[in-house]
Design a protein around this nucleic acid. Structure first.
Length: 720
RNA sequence: GCGCUCUUAGCUCAGUUGGUUAGAGCGUUCGCCUCACACGCGAAAGGUCGCAGGUUCGAAUCCUGCAGAGCGCACCA
């Protein structure tokens, strides 16, 4: 009997030692598995790419959940003999990382990025990112993730940058990436454009003002933003609104709060006759809808009255004022001119930037876009259709299924994707200018070319992740072997940001799918159901949890009973429960090893013992089917229940008199049964609790592989 | 406004897609340091499965309506 079983199971000591042994063996790498003969060279392939965590700091429990689920599938497939590849990596996360570092510098040194300059800021960010990367990698290892570190990637390294430039050029050449002057979402706080998906709407109460521009203009309008009215070019009414028929086509000139404006009355069906006065003042340069209406009526877009700092650019009393101040001044002026008719409170959804919280200011800017409604050359389909087809046809399966509806709804309403950002950290737009000339893709060799100042939305590089990590655009062996990947597992909150765009980019670039199945997990919340956040201080750190209860316990607590797509609550109490379970398994092993010394594991079983073993086999089949069908939440609970309440409570208890009794045949059979059940329970539990099971396996007389990690799954004929 | 999800034991959730007395963990109560384990063992209490209809031999499970909670998208200027 080994001394190690005499003490309660100590996860912290064991786990780091076991992970080092796995790493040293090289068996996370499928090529090594083949080389060492634990995997057949012709075995089928199974691959997952790790959703790369942002290098913005540390991992949270959501990451721990992601790692646990993916590692379960990877370990399961590896034990089933697949050539199994799980690729690690991290994401530069452009705007997120830059804003973290900028905030820190502002706090510590009181300077802005413009004080530092592009080069110096990038240097600082890279230092931060490198440190963050190291923290994250060690956290991932702590969780037991069996990732092939020899293939680690970073979204901003040279290989991935090459993929980004290549994909950009292909799309540009296909006419699907264009540069155009459009109304974009401008974040004055972050000083950059953001995509529609980076907007968070916040409900606030706002004042709705009803007034006329001037006494000689006979139509009253209503707005929550009087300050923008100095940029108006028209009044729009609904074509069927008889109140205003007489005025359609009329034009007026006036001075509005010191600013000369020219207003034309137009009819457009976009206008809701029941809101406000049924008449809208059109500000084409500062409203997406107004811009579109102005387009239809050939009105000018060019009256810009607000700049990038959300300050007024007009002359007169509003000059240089912030929009909020300007609003008060305009209202004051309206009142003094007797033009203000009504002020009322309404509820309004205000667009804010997800990262900075800044109020989004729509304004026209020359930016790069991906056009989603134009047919891709030679494909007969638009990018939108390319995104819909594989999910509609079922080639890509989303779990849980109801998210497919959400996906369709989003794609169908998708507008052109603004991919350029005015931040410095990220992939610089691969476009160079020299006078009227333009080069796209790789930097021209000769001089005098100037590269586009902007960088790409971070999701552009992430969207290539399943194949950029495999060496594309080079035709590598990895790319040929492992793409499309089998599973993409991530939180449902990035279904649009990431999943949708991966499908888009992969369909366009490779004419195939990036993955066969999408498994979406829910949010991990605290014990009270609140979202974990820094400001609430209710974050559970996976490292702390692993140190306290063991990574195995943390994994079980996160996975057991946690259905896909549903938010879950986690508490230390729950993790503690599974720490106890780990100790239970430890003691089951201790008992069985103590009582089967010198026994023959292959001895034939009595009829009764054979029946007990067939109960295990039924369970193993069920668990196998559950994993195959992505019901890991059920599989975990079933193994737990079997190990504790069947194996320990019943089988071991019933064995005690047999093992101390006089019936030698019964004893031999029972010893063989117990060894077999322990051996196979460890195998079944290994994907869920890899450390504990590996540690026990190393002391098993039934050990038949260098590591349990590459030992055979306990039941190989389980599939339908 | 459009769409999605949820409502099951005190709490957190399962219930494998209609089938015998509805399950788990935690918590509670009682009794046990029984020589694998007190990170444990034995026992017990606890549910009109949100409400109202319907389909069916049979419904927590399918359909309709209602109520409450949450989320996503769009958006009123």
């Amino acid at each position: 009997m080994l001394d190690k079983f005499l003490k309660p199971y100590d996860a912290t000591v064991t786990e780091s030692r076991v992970y080092r042994a796995w790493e040293k063996s090289g068996l996370f790498n499928p090529d090594e598995c083949v080389k060492l003969g634990v995997t057949n060279a012709n075995a089928p392939v199974y691959s997952i790419v790790l959703p790369p965590p942002n290098v913005t700091g540390r991992l949270h429990m959501g990451h721990a959940l992601m790692l646990a689920i993916e590692d379960i599938f990877i370990r399961y497939k590896r034990m089933r003999g697949f050539r199994t590849l799980w690729i690690p990596g991290t994401d530069h996360a452009a705007i997120a990382t830059q804003s973290v570092v900028e905030k820190q510098i502002k706090k510590d040194e009181g300077v802005s990025r413009h004080d530092l300059g592009r080069e110096e800021l990038l240097k600082r960010i890279e230092t931060f990112a490198a440190k963050s990367h190291d923290t994250i990698v060690s956290q991932i290892k702590t969780m037991g993730a069996s990732l092939d570190w020899s293939r680690e990637a970073f979204t901003l390294d040279e290989s991935r940058s090459h993929a980004v430039r290549t994909a950009f050029k292909q799309m540009y050449d296909a006419g699907l990436i264009y540069r155009g002057l459009r109304i974009v979402n401008w974040d004055p706080k972050g000083q950059t454009t953001i995509s529609d998906d980076e907007i968070v709407y916040e409900e606030r109460t706002a004042k709705l003002y009803t007034f006329r521009y001037a006494k000689n203009i006979p139509i009253s309008i209503a707005t929550t933003r009087p300050e923008t009215k100095v940029g108006d070019v028209a009044i729009a009414v609904h074509p069927d609104d008889t109140r205003y028929h007489a005025f359609i086509g009329k034009e007026y000139d006036t001075i509005f709060c010191d600013v000369p404006i020219h207003i034309k009355v137009i009819a457009d069906k976009e206008v809701d006759p029941n809101f406000g006065t049924g008449a809208v003042g059109l500000t084409p340069a500062h409203s997406k809808v107004d811009w579109e209406i102005a387009d239809r009526h050939e009105l000018s877009h060019e009256v810009i009255v607000i700049n990038e700092y959300a300050k007024m650019t007009v002359a007169g009393r509003l000059a240089g004022k912030k929009t909020a101040e300007a609003r008060d001044l305009v209202v004051e002026w309206l009142a003094s001119e007797n033009l203000l008719e009504k002020t009322e409170d309404i509820k309004q959804n205000i667009a804010t930037a997800e990262r900075t919280g800044g109020i989004v200011e729509p304004m026209p800017k020359l930016q790069w876009f991906i056009e989603v409604n134009k047919e891709a050359p030679g494909r007969g389909e638009t990018l939108k259709e390319l995104m819909l087809r594989p999910v509609r046809s079922g080639i890509i399966k989303i779990i849980p299924e109801h998210f497919e509806k959400t996906y369709f709804h989003w794609v169908e309403n998708l507008r052109d994707w603004c991919i350029s950002r005015q931040i410095w950290y990220g992939h610089r737009i691969p476009v160079w200018y020299r006078g009227e000339e333009i080069v796209v893709g790789e930097a021209p060799k000769d001089t005098e070319w100037v590269q586009d100042e902007d960088s790409l939305d971070t999701w552009f590089s992430s969207s290539l992740w399943t194949f950029s990590t495999l060496g594309w655009p080079d035709h590598t062996q990895d790319f040929e072997t492992y793409h499309p990947t089998d599973l993409l597992e991530t939180g449902y909150d990035i279904l649009f940001f990431w999943i949708a765009r991966m499908i888009l980019m992969t369909e366009f670039t490779l004419d195939t799918i990036p993955f066969k199945t999408v498994y979406l997990h829910g949010l991990v919340r605290d014990a009270h159901g609140r979202k974990m956040s820094k400001s609430l201080g209710n974050n559970l750190d996976p490292l702390d949890i692993a140190a306290k209860f063991g990574a195995d316990a943390a994994r079980m607590a996160l996975v057991a009973g946690n259905t896909p797509g549903t938010d879950m609550r986690i508490s230390e109490e729950k993790v503690k429960g599974y720490k106890h379970f780990a100790n239970k398994i430890w003691n089951i092993a201790r008992f069985i090893l103590e009582n089967t010394g010198g026994a023959t594991p292959t001895a034939s079983l009595t009829q009764g013992d054979a029946a007990i073993r067939s109960v295990f086999e039924a369970l193993a089949r069920e668990v196998t089917m559950d994993i195959e069908k992505y019901r890991v939440y059920l599989a975990a609970e079933k193994i737990y229940h079997y190990a504790w309440h069947e194996l320990a409570d019943k089988i071991i208890e019933e064995s005690k008199p047999i093992l101390t009794g006089n019936d030698a045949a019964a004893k031999v059979s029972r010893q063989a049964l117990l060894l077999s059940l322990l051996d196979r329970t460890l195998r079944l539990l290994h994907p869920f609790m890899p450390f504990l099971t590996e540690e026990i396996y190393q002391s098993m007389p039934t050990k038949d592989a260098p590591f349990l990690m590459v030992a055979k799954w306990p039941i190989m004929d389980a599939l339908e």
